[in-house]
Nucleic acid binder design. Sequence first.
DNA 1: GTCTATAGAGGGATAGAC
DNA 2: GTCTATCCCTCTATAGAC
Lengths: 183, 183
Amino acid sequence: MRYPPEHKARARRQLLASAGALAKRDGFAATGVDRFMAEAGATSGAFYAHFGSKAAMFEAVVEQELAQSLAMLGDDPADPAALARFVERYLSLAHVEHPEAGCCLPSLAAEIGRGPEPVRARFEAAMQALHARVAAACADPERAWPLIAQAVGAVLLARAMHSTDSRAALLGAVRRDAATPRR
Amino acid sequence: MRYPPEHKARARRQLLASAGALAKRDGFAATGVDRFMAEAGATSGAFYAHFGSKAAMFEAVVEQELAQSLAMLGDDPADPAALARFVERYLSLAHVEHPEAGCCLPSLAAEIGRGPEPVRARFEAAMQALHARVAAACADPERAWPLIAQAVGAVLLARAMHSTDSRAALLGAVRRDAATPRR
DNA sequence: GTCTATAGAGGGATAGAC
DNA sequence: GTCTATCCCTCTATAGAC
């Protein structure tokens, strides 16, 4: 073997990281295998040493991105203050303007919804783990899904807007509502 | 002329309607010109009699779909009860399961965000009209953006889930939160 | 494991007949 | 205005050299 045994695992990890960023920025279906490999500093021929098909890579990207989102919620299992800080960062202009570095849900959820059953099953499991984490940090566990939906929807819509002012107006209104206790 | 003068306008309207449905179901970029035309009962050669390019059709589809969404809010300019009914229908399992017949925001907002400036400018104008309508029907106008973001995010995420139970749990929680007055 | 080269399918767009 | 036929490009995936 001309490559050390860890080479493949490392190459795959780097490939998945750059592919995740590229997929979030330009869309997964809209990005060709050639571009994914070029971004990782390789050519398309090497792709199939790591994934059986482009669809298989989508599964891996989604799994990796959702695990990362879960990890970003913090290690503390149920800290309301940490959740509040997370939501503030999530609903920031910086997050809206840099999809490649952000959460995969506003960028890729529509494509996941159109994907095959295995992808949606993995997605569902990851989302339930995320939901449990958020619910544990909420005064009312029933607030978890509404909070998640609101945050994802806000970033999705802000990204589709043209002016920074409109984006900021939307994000500000949602930030205030997310921080408002329910009756 | 072998076709009556209204023929082109009618053909274009039918084409836009079927293209909107197809784009919402399968994604706009992922659907080829051939399939858009086949769905309208024609062939790809006729496409360019109506649109200068595929990108031009995207603009037209987005404009048409957003106008339709606005119209579905009802003619009554500021009726809180009509808004509540609209939100209930929006957050239904039927809406989640039939993207082709539903709102274009959960389906196409990510693609709009990746689109060229003219598309995002049209989007922004339409969204501000929609926001004004919703704000007029809310007790607190500041609730308009949060409510819209929440509804769009909920449908987007529910569509990506695999099981009907999970979809219903998410939708139910968001419906309850949307109907809860803020302090 | 990664490369170059290529097969085979499908994409957007145009030309010319009717 | 719509058709068929076609150009050229890009896409996914495979083959064979190293």
